[in-house]
């Protein structure tokens, strides 16, 4: 077990290194890093300004500082005169100590910009998982109970259909029906109170949860059908227990393996989906901030957000992996 854990943790660290390096290279190896940090300002001829040949300009929000001073500061903060590998190591050190760099577009630390955005995004994803499990478990049980009957067939066709609806399409349809036409839910984000926020996150959560629910429902049905062949189920039946008692209390728990396995992988789809859904329902989360950062060429914010999200995703998969091997000891030996 100790050896297994050491291997797993080593793997985790290696993947985290690779993920951070890949993100870092996007800023530093693709295109001009100075341009990525400060945008079009990078094209200023600052040598000429220094030599006094042309005047420095001020185009940023705080008009006190000259553009060339900003460029010089950006060079210093992002250590652009150092070799790439050294920059990566120093940047990684900053990252570990919680410093994600500075945005030169609005002169704020990236950590500061992103900090407030995470809670609402995480809340959205948790609600989506709750919706997904709340739908998938009862429907999965029912489908397995009525296996190959009409209800099961309808559910099977239905879940196949739901899986083919892109989440943004479902989002637009729900927005149209429930927010604009019947006005049951608000069309824009409302965080005036906890209840109001929950309510305005309901449609987005259903949008994200529906696809997940379909995946979970199909897996649970398959696993349940296997479990129902087991001796202990026949035993329970022989003892005269009711079907619903057998389903919920005996068969459900050993049938949750596949759902746990795909939970990690699906989190990736959930994160990607929430980027899109935040746009549709104007939710002020990380996704929206990242997209706005891309549009205003604010690469430090993009990099910071991507690194945090990707690392979080890696850690979630690591935890799911451990959880899985803890539940099923056979995994450890292979």
């Amino acid at each position: 077990m100790t050896r297994f854990m050491i291997n797993k943790v080593a793997q985790l660290l290696l993947v985290l290194l690779a993920v951070t390096f890949l993100s870092f290279s996007a800023l530093n190896l693709l295109g001009d890093p100075l341009f990525n940090v400060v945008g079009p300002l990078a094209e200023l001829d600052c040598d000429a300004v220094e030599a006094g040949l042309i005047e420095d300009t001020t185009t940023t929000l705080n008009n006190q500082v000259g553009d060339c001073e900003i460029v010089a500061e950006a060079r210093a903060v992002y250590r652009l005169d150092e070799p790439v590998m050294k920059r990566y190591v120093l940047w990684l050190g900053d990252l570990i100590s919680g410093d994600l760099g500075t945005s030169f577009k609005n002169d704020l630390p990236v950590t500061e910009i992103l900090k407030d955005k995470f809670p609402v995004s995480i809340m959205l994803m948790v609600m989506a998982e709750i919706v997904a499990l709340g739908l998938a478990i009862p429907l999965g049980i029912y489908a397995a109970y009525r296996a190959n009957h009409r209800a099961d067939r309808i559910l099977s066709v239905g879940s196949f259909g739901v899986l083919s609806i892109p989440n943004f399409a479902l989002g637009v349809i729900l927005l149209y029906l429930f927010a604009l036409k019947w006005q049951i839910f608000p069309a824009t984000h409302d965080d005036s109170s906890f209840f109001a926020e929950m309510k305005s996150l309901s449609l987005p959560a259903i949008t994200l949860g529906a696809g997940l629910a379909a995946t979970y429902q199909r897996l649970l049905r398959t696993d349940l059908l296997t479990t129902l062949q087991e001796d202990f189920v026949h035993m329970a039946r022989a003892k005269g227990m009711t079907d619903s008692h057998i389903m919920w209390r005996h068969a459900l728990r050993p049938s949750l393996f596949s759902i746990i396995t795909v939970f990690g992988v699906n989190t990736g789809a959930l994160i990607g989906g929430s980027l899109v859904v935040e746009q549709i329902f104007s939710i002020p989360g990380v996704g929206r901030e990242l997209v706005q950062a891309v549009i205003r060429d604010d690469f430090p914010v993009v990099l910071g957000g991507v690194v945090v999200i990707a690392s979080g995703f890696v850690v979630i998969n690591f935890v799911v992996d451990l959880l899985y091997s803890w539940l099923d000891p056979r995994v450890r030996t292979t």
């Binding site: 993947v15 690779a18 993920v19 890949l22 993100s23 996007a26 800023l27 693709l30 295109g31 990525n36 989190t267 990736g268 789809a269 994160i271 990607g272 989906g273 980027l275 899109v276 990242l290 997209v291 891309v294 690469f299 993009v302 990099l303 991507v306 999200i309 990707a310 995703f313 890696v314 998969n317």
Partner: peptide
Amino acid sequence: LSFPALVLALLITATF
């Protein structure tokens, strides 16, 4: 695969 797909896409399209 350690990147959520759309996040990786965002990173690439942001630079190009």
